[in-house]
Design a protein around this nucleic acid. Structure first.
Lengths: 118, 118
DNA sequence: CAGTATCCGGAGCGATACTG
DNA sequence: CAGTATCGCTCCGGATACTG
C-alpha cells in the first residue's frame, strides 16, 4: 500500500474513510443499494434517531452517494436513492464485508486471549 | 450485499468497521504492514499524541492485528509488528484505497455542487 | 410525513505532566 | 524510551419537542 500520502490529512483514503467511518453511513449505503427508500422506512429499518438519520442522509447526498426524490403529495413524500457513485462504493465495501465475515472469529478469539491474559 | 445482519449490532461487518473507523487505526495498520516500528518512530511518523498512540496500539494488539516485541535493553526497547491477520486486513483495505483515489474527485465535486446550490 | 430545534451525556482526542 | 495519569474541549449521537 502506497501510504506516503496517508500522512496528509487530505489524502483521498483518509477523506473517504473519515466520511464513511461513522456509526450509520455504511449501513444506509448498503440499504439504499438494495433499492429506493423513504425517510420513515429508513428510520424503522435502522432504528436511528430522526436527527441523526436526517444528518447522515444529508451528508450522503452532499458526497454524491445518494439523491433525494420529492413527490408533491400531501403530505409530501420523499424517496432516497443511491447514485452510481454510491453503488460503486457499496460494491467496494463488499470486500471488507467478506473479510469481516471470514475473520471476525479470529479477531474475537484474539480479544478473548488478550483479556484473559490481563 | 447481504445486509440482513447489518441491523444486528454484532454483525461482523459492523464490528470490524467500528474497530478500524477511528482516526488513526488504518494509518497505523498500513505503516506497520511496511515493517516493524518502535513506539517513538510511530509517534514521529504520524504526529499522534502519546496517549492516543498507546491507546490505539493496545487495541491493535488486542484485536490480533499487531504484536509487541520487548527487548530488555536499558532503557527498554519495544517494537511493534503486524500479524498475519493484520497484514491480511491491510491488504483488503487496499481495495478501498484504490476506490478512494479513483473517485475522490467525484466526491469533492459533488460536495462543491451541493454547497454551491445552498 | 419529513423533517428542524434544543438540550444533554459520553466518547474521542490533544496537551501536559509524571514514571520505571 | 515507552509508556501512564489527568484535564479539558469538542463532537457525536440520542431523547424530546415542535413545524410545514
Amino acid at each position: 500500500m502506497d501510504c506516503g500520502d496517508l500522512f496528509n490529512p487530505d489524502c483521498p483514503t483518509r477523506l473517504v474513510l473519515d466520511r464513511i467511518a461513522d456509526k450509520w453511513t455504511v449501513m444506509l449505503l448498503v440499504l439504499l443499494s438494495q433499492g429506493p427508500m423513504r425517510f420513515s422506512a429508513l428510520k424503522r429499518a435502522t432504528g436511528i434517531s430522526q436527527k441523526v438519520l436526517a444528518q447522515t442522509l444529508k451528508r450522503l447526498e452532499r458526497d454524491g452517494f445518494a439523491s433525494r426524490a420529492v413527490f408533491p403529495t400531501v403530505p409530501v413524500t420523499v424517496e432516497y436513492l443511491i447514485t452510481p457513485l454510491g453503488a460503486d462504493l457499496a460494491q467496494t465495501l463488499e470486500g471488507l464485508r467478506l473479510w469481516s465475515e471470514r475473520h471476525i472469529g479470529a479477531v474475537l478469539a484474539a480479544q478473548r486471549d488478550y483479556d484473559a491474559a490481563a
